[in-house]
């Protein structure tokens, strides 16, 4: 199962990024193979409008089964995600990636 995280860094101890559209990185973790990778989204900083749809489009290309994030998608991003197969869990904005994963596993995150 492939899990995506919105993060401010590329390590397990990095902080989560509460934002989806303007997240600095998307971290990917495959809990079957243990594969750990990331996508650098920092160029989004220079985008004035439409950060939500743009980041979500990239996210869907990465094709995770689950997205763990903080605040949750805004209107435009939510419109793109509406028909997407991935499950979204929110409320992990103030955690490290490691904490967010265990919170998800313990069923402590809210599903969006």
């Amino acid at each position: 199962m492939k899990i995506a995280f919105t993060t401010k860094g590329t390590e397990w101890d990095s902080m989560m990024d509460p934002r989806l559209g303007r997240t600095e990185f998307i971290l990917l973790y495959d809990d079957e193979t243990g594969e750990f990778s990331h996508y650098d989204n920092r160029a989004i900083e220079h985008t004035a409008h439409g950060a939500g749809p743009k980041t979500v489009q990239k996210l869907l290309e990465l094709n995770p089964d689950i997205l763990i994030t903080g605040n949750g998608p805004g209107g435009n991003a939510a419109a793109v995600l509406k028909n997407a197969p991935l499950k979204i869990y929110i409320g992990a904005g103030e955690m490290t990636v490691k904490e967010a994963l265990s919170a998800y596993k313990n069923g402590e995150l809210m599903s969006f």
């Binding site: 004035a48 409008h49 749809p53 743009k54 489009q57 419109a79 793109v80």
Partner: peptide, 12 residues
Amino acid sequence: FHAIIQLSDQIM
């Protein structure tokens, strides 16, 4: 302006 995105064969 990211006003158009393509998801497989769909345009939003």
